[in-house]
Each structure stands twice: as C-alpha cells, then as structure tokens.
Simulated assay, not measured.
Amino acid sequence: MTHNYAIDRIKFLAAMAVVLIHVTAFLETEGLATFANYYWYRHLLNFAVPFFFATTGYLVAQQKDTTSYLRRYLTKILVMYVVFTLFYLLVDAFIFVPTSMAMGASFPNALLQYWHTLSWVKVGNGQIGHYHLWYLWALFLASLILYWCVKRGWSPTQIVVGAVVIYLVGRWLITVNLHWELLANGGFPKALVSLVGGYYVAKRNLAWRGGLVTALIILFAYQALSLSDIHFFAGEFVLILAIWVLMTYVNARPGKSSPLSRWAAYSMEIYLFHPILLTIYSYSSNVEPDIEIQSHGWRVMLMTCTTVAVSIFLYPYFDRFYIQPLEERLEPNLDRLVRKLT
C-alpha cells in the first residue's frame, strides 16, 4: 500500500481547524461574532471532522483483509474512547466539585450536583466525558456498520446507498427534533456517510486531479449556504459532497513527504488533548481577566498555535503514564466485547 502524503497534509490542517473552532467558539456565545472576525470563515472549518472520517474509510479500503483490519481497528477506537472518557470525567469532576464548594455547597452535595450533570443521553451520543469525544463514539459505530456490510458481502455501491439512507434518516430525525440529542453534531450517520465516501473512492480508485479546486468551490458554496435559511439541511449535503470530491483529489495525487505531512502524526493527539488546555485557560482567565483573548485576531491565532504546540509536547508524557497503563488493562475485555459485536 502506497503511503498517501496528501492525506497527511490535509489531516494536520484539519486538526488545526478543529482547534480553531473551539478557540473561537466564545465569539458567538458571548455575542462578539461579526462577519469580519467569525462568520466569513467559520463554516469552512467544518470540513475537518468529516475529512477525518473519510480518511479512515479510505485506509480501510486499502487493506487486504478488510474485516480483520476493521475488527482490530474497532477495538483500538473503543479503548481510546473509554480511556479519554474516563480522563475527562475526572477532569470535569476535579473542576466542578471545588467550584461548587466555593459557592457554598458541601462536598457530598457538590458530588451529587456533578452526578446530575451526567445523563444517559450523553452516553448515547458519546459526550459523557467531553463534547469532542462524540467523534470517537461515532467513528466506532460507523466502523462497526461498515464491518457488518463488508462481512455480508455488500458491494461498495450498496454500502454507499445504505449509508446515504441512514444519513437522510438521521438528518430528518434532527430536523423534527426527534431524539436529536442522540445525534449531536450529526452523530454516527454523519460519520458513516463520510467514512463510506472515503471507502468508495479507494475501492473504485476514483482519482481526479481537479478535485481540490472543485472541493474548495463546493466548500465556499457551503459557506455561502451557512448564511441562508436552508443551511441546516441542504448545507450538510454540500459539505459531504465536498469531502467526497476532496478524497478523489488525494487519491489522484498522493504527493511526497514534506514537513507538513510529517506533522500529521500528531493530528489525533491534538484533537483529543487540546480541550483540556482550553478548559484550564478558561478558568485561568476568570481569575486573571487580562489574559482574555477577546475578539483580537492575533490573540486567537496565538491561542490556537499555543494549544497545538502544548498538546504535542505534553501528549507523550500523558500517553506513557496514563494511556498505555490503562489501555493494557482495558484492551482484553473490550476486545472480547468487539468480537461479540462482530
């Protein structure tokens, strides 16, 4: 299997996009967002997570034994999801409980209040630990569905049709507010249709050198739709189309190794670890208001780059002293669970 460096380059840019989404979220929630400092680019950043899903499908399709690879991959993703969910639950408790006690609650009452912030809905949508972990849960469910389809001998075309149907049903459920909480951020239907798009491109060897320009045009159309009333439903289709077209470009031009492609090795670390740094910063800014980034562009970019750099620097230590020891304990049991599901 030839390594695709184009995927690597875009993956790192996608990781940066996710961090920028979370860094700039305060602009909208605090009423500071304008077209000049936020809305002109915000929806363009949404390409990031669907692209991550699509690259997974692309890599799965290139494996000689797809089902065996997917079974191992399912265990890996599930272990990672549980490990980080436990971590963020501890972090949230460590922050929430002392804050509640500082406001007059006793320690037992503070723990009880924290317990009440948890719900089965968050378990269902993958956000029980932290909002960004929906990605791992959705990826696990989408990969599991792909496994079932491949195991049953479905053709790539049949799998795409099935994924699109599931996606349409998911969008409809969200539109009518029927169990939409379980499909936060699009949930597994969004993951599946993106994942299968990458899988289909690789299986059919769809390669289009003009795919990058076309994908960018479609993304800007998606950005334009973000300002319209039909964005919620129609815009999502345009975004998925852009990702599928982008995959035909990376398949046509795998490229060569470069500094940017090598940075892609840190994409998952950046995605999973950066929220803890933003949380620490948020609480620090409450104590010292002068460090608030406000809406100044240079402060936003500085915070984004700093978060990425610190994530890359700290993650190896986090991996050594927390992730690896816990993975060794969890993997046997979770692997048995995956084998039952598959």
Rank of each mutant, 00 (worst) to 15 (best):
Y5G: 01
T306H: 08
S295H: 12
G187D: 06
V19L: 11
R329G: 09
I218Y: 02
L260E: 07
M301P: 02
A102I: 01
N333K: 08
V308I: 15
I7C: 12
F12P: 03
N286C: 04
S295P: 00
A264Y: 03
N333P: 00
T248F: 01
T248N: 01
V91H: 02
A184Q: 14
R71N: 12
H130A: 14
L216G: 08
L216R: 02
E292P: 01
T24R: 06
N286F: 03
C305W: 13
S295D: 15
A242Y: 06
A54K: 10
I174Q: 12
S295V: 05
T99Y: 07
K151G: 05
W208G: 08
L59A: 15
R336L: 13
A142W: 02
Y39Q: 08
L20V: 12
P108E: 04
S267T: 14
G153K: 00
S155A: 06
W172G: 03
F140I: 03
Y249P: 00
V161G: 07
R71H: 11
A264G: 15
L334Y: 04
N37T: 04
Y281W: 11
P325K: 03
R204V: 09
N177H: 14
P259E: 08
L219R: 01
F273R: 00
V164H: 09
G104V: 03
P332Q: 06
W40D: 00
L195E: 10
L277Y: 09
H231D: 08
V238C: 00
F140S: 06
T304S: 10
L206W: 15
E269Y: 10
L74D: 03
N37F: 06
R329A: 10
L182F: 14
T55C: 14
L227N: 05
H231G: 01
I243P: 05
W40Y: 11
N251A: 13
A163W: 00
L44K: 04
A207D: 06
H296Y: 11
A309S: 13
V300A: 04
W154N: 13
A25N: 09
L133D: 10
L44F: 13
A215H: 02
K203D: 08
S226A: 15
W148G: 07
G235F: 03
L216C: 11
A234H: 04
K256N: 12
M80R: 11
A242P: 09
R71D: 05
V121F: 10
I218R: 05
E328S: 10
Y58N: 08
Y167A: 09
N333D: 00
V91D: 01
